[in-house]
Design a protein around this nucleic acid. Structure first.
Lengths: 160, 160
DNA sequence: AGCGAACATCTTGAGCTTGAAATGAAACGC
DNA sequence: GCGTTTCATTTCAAGCTCAAGATGTTCGCT
């Protein structure tokens, strides 16, 4: 780490101000997301879960039973991935599948009492950990940041 | 998709305003990063590269030859991953390794002329694609967003 | 009713990323 | 000088994610 010589000649290329601004923004987004993700993941690993597993449990904890495809849409992951994670969580006894009566294509995921207990126990401390990580920004800054992220994210999903 | 019943009873739990704000922010960050990453990845795949490969080439393209560990630090990925990606790029002839004379632990990665040509050809259009994706935000908003992301990212990396 | 399009889930195979341990090299302290 | 610590890279195994295709279900149209 920290081996970039001072005069190692980074050719500064420019692609127009709009492109340079966008590239700078994208790098900032990717690096920030990676860093915060690491904080989150480290915390979650202490509960014996992966980030993906925790994310699925968390959605069910706060929204109630949901079809697998809805979970996938919320988490922006593929159907195959949700199947994989749901298998794990079902195997661990935190979740159970239930085929929907109205639409038999659909499988609903429900937290078991064990899954609910797990989140009762660990979610508050996880929330506290994330709040601590966010303290680097003022409440005002956090709100501004969240607003811009949502705006960009939504637009990006819309036009493909 | 879009199967959440209207009264499926999402229990609204609160963990204090600071925690709720932080969780909301973290969800927005993760979703936005995922969406933008998808746009970037789709574009890069058309050049026959993965995002990780493109990221390594891009760093070398703009900064000149660098030790593998420096690349890893910039991209926030592990050393093993950089070795893996460098192997691929070396196999494809876009990059070559060169052991440093001053510090023989270090391996410098350099773009080959073929690698340089690849980026000469494709980087500008990739930059344009990312600029287009960023157009959902005004230049002022993009700058504000980048500033906040950098501030949060840096702080998050600092205190672990 | 019947057919084709769209959908939800699952399966499979391939690729990406990580963490931990191994190797070789430099730096530090005494 | 010599041993300890730190560092850069590599290797390896395990796990995560995706894309593409298969299966079973529903919807829309005629």
């Amino acid at each position: 780490m920290k081996r970039a010589g001072p005069s190692t000649g980074g050719r500064r290329r420019s692609y127009g101000t709009a492109a340079d601004r966008a590239l700078n923004l994208w790098v900032a987004l990717a690096r920030c997301a990676s860093s915060v993700s690491r904080v989150s993941a480290r915390d979650i690993h202490r509960y014996g879960l992966t980030q993906a597993q925790f994310a699925v449990l968390e959605v069910l904890y706060h929204k109630g039973p949901l079809p697998l495809c809805t979970i996938g849409a919320k988490l922006l992951v593929t159907s195959g991935n949700i199947t994989y994670v749901a298998d794990q969580l079902e195997g661990s006894g935190f979740l159970r599948r239930e085929r929907s009566a109205e639409d038999r294509r659909v499988v609903l995921a429900k937290l078991t009492s064990q899954g609910e207990a797990l989140l009762d126990k660990h979610f508050p401390s996880h929330a506290a950990r994330m709040a601590e990580a966010a303290r680097a920004l003022s409440p005002r800054e956090q709100e501004a940041l969240a607003r811009l992220l949502k705006k960009w994210g939504k637009a990006t999903r819309k036009d493909q």
